[in-house]
């Protein structure tokens, strides 16, 4: 019986590195998307919606639904299910459209 996905496929990953999520250090394995690294820590939400302020995270997992948007290294609206986690990435929960800096 395999207890984890990594055990199932006999994964021998390269060394993990760290990304930052809302000020917290999160490990990521080389090749994992940002969304996958967050799921691995049981983090499921990293956006709040524009109208209701409701939490959202990855839904379709293949870049179609755009629910998994977050602010990555200061750039808003990044599809975290497609974006590979890079060492030192800073991921911030995106509030609404993520363009509060443009408000007048």
């Amino acid at each position: 019986m395999h207890r984890t996905p990594a055990e199932l496929v006999g994964a021998r990953p390269e060394a993990a590195y760290t990304i930052e999520f809302d000020g917290r250090e999160v490990p990521a394995l080389p090749g994992q998307s940002i969304a996958a690294a967050l799921w691995a820590q049981d983090i499921l939400a990293w956006r709040t919606t524009r109208v209701g302020g409701r939490p959202r995270g990855a839904f379709c997992g293949i870049g179609v639904c755009f629910d998994c948007l977050a602010t990555v290294n200061g750039r808003a609206n990044q599809r975290t299910c497609l974006l590979p986690a890079q060492p030192g990435d800073t991921v911030t929960t995106q509030e609404g459209h993520g363009r509060a800096d443009l408000a007048v």
Binding site: P5, A11, A35, G61, I62, C81
Partner: peptide, 14 residues
Amino acid sequence: GGAQAMLKSGLVLP
């Protein structure tokens, strides 16, 4: 399909 995709590519579960 998303659960499948995240598992197959990222080796993670929701």
